[in-house]
């Protein structure tokens, strides 16, 4: 079983990318589980034809964690992809990170964590230990950073490298950086910038996903690109990304950049 986690700046396209990877992998005949680890609970929406599925935390809130059954929290979407949303507290109260930890414990107990590939789609930044959970305890072995060429997106990706480096250094730490996924924002030389960034942190650009209006059209129709326009060029890119991830054997302990080095790298691409 391959377990991968996608991290990156909020709003950078992690959920879109995750859902399309899951859809593409399911088209290859693989058994896929996608877990949304964000209180916003919208990771799996496109796999579920726009439906916001009940979250694990919804169930805990309503009935307590002991009476939850597998069917209450695992829902089948496009291509048989099993979808789970961790959910969390209302904004501004409680501890969402603890909610992620509790979700993993419940899913373990229910025996939900199986299949050919598990895709963890995690909230923007690693804001606390709870959101690092997919990297810990032997869950995701491969971390993929989703970033555009914008400085703040690279900054967030670089920050996540710090978490990966710290956790990979522990005796039980098995997580490694699998690579960088470029999610284009139509910036000049963006693919090259992200590729250079990936190299500088000791990793590689596993796929560059160009910006495309197909993505928005698919989402407005409540579908992944893979489902909505399977013959499109964008769908082919996502399939290539999914294939690259499955073939990927390069797993690195990243070396995060100092802020001034990161800025200098980004500045190079503005002036050239």
């Amino acid at each position: 079983m391959k377990q991968i986690a996608l991290y990156g700046k909020g709003g950078i396209g992690k959920s879109t990318t995750s859902a399309n990877i899951s859809a593409a992998l399911s088209d290859m005949g693989l058994d896929i589980l996608q877990i949304g680890c964000d209180p916003k609970r919208d990771s799996t929406r496109m796999l579920m034809q726009g439906r916001l599925i009940p979250t694990v935390m919804d169930q805990v809130r309503e009935r307590g964690d002991r009476s939850i059954a597998l069917d209450d929290v695992v829902f089948t979407g496009y291509g048989g992809v099993r979808c789970v949303e961790a959910g969390g507290p209302e904004p501004g109260v409680g501890c969402a990170g603890r909610g992620i930890i509790a979700t993993f414990q419940i899913l373990e107990r229910l025996g939900a964590l199986h299949g050919d590939v598990i895709v963890y789609d995690v909230l923007g930044d690693v804001v606390c230990g709870g959101f690092a959970m997919p990297m810990r305890e032997g869950y995701a072995q491969e971390i993929y950073l989703v970033t555009s060429g914008e400085l703040m997106s690279l900054y967030a990706a670089n920050n996540i490298c710090k978490a990966i480096k710290r956790l990979s250094g522990r005796s039980r730490g098995i997580c490694r950086l699998g690579g960088v996924i470029g999610n284009g924002k139509n910036l000049e030389d963006e693919e090259e910038l992200i590729s250079r960034f990936a190299g500088r942190i000791g990793s590689t650009l596993i796929q560059f996903v160009p910006r495309s209006p197909v993505v928005q059209r698919a989402e407005l129709n409540k579908k992944t690109v893979i489902e909505y326009e399977p013959e499109s060029r964008q769908a082919a890119v996502y399939r290539q990304l999914a294939g690259n991830i499955m073939k990927n054997t390069r797993l690195d302990i990243p070396e995060p950049l100092e802020m001034e080095d990161l800025e200098a790298l980004a500045y190079e691409f503005i002036t050239n």
Binding site: V60, R61, D65, P89, E90, V93, G94, C95, R98, A102
Partner: peptide, 10 residues
Amino acid sequence: TESEIIFGGE
């Protein structure tokens, strides 16, 4: 309990 930790204890 854990539930209040996650959802808030107010």
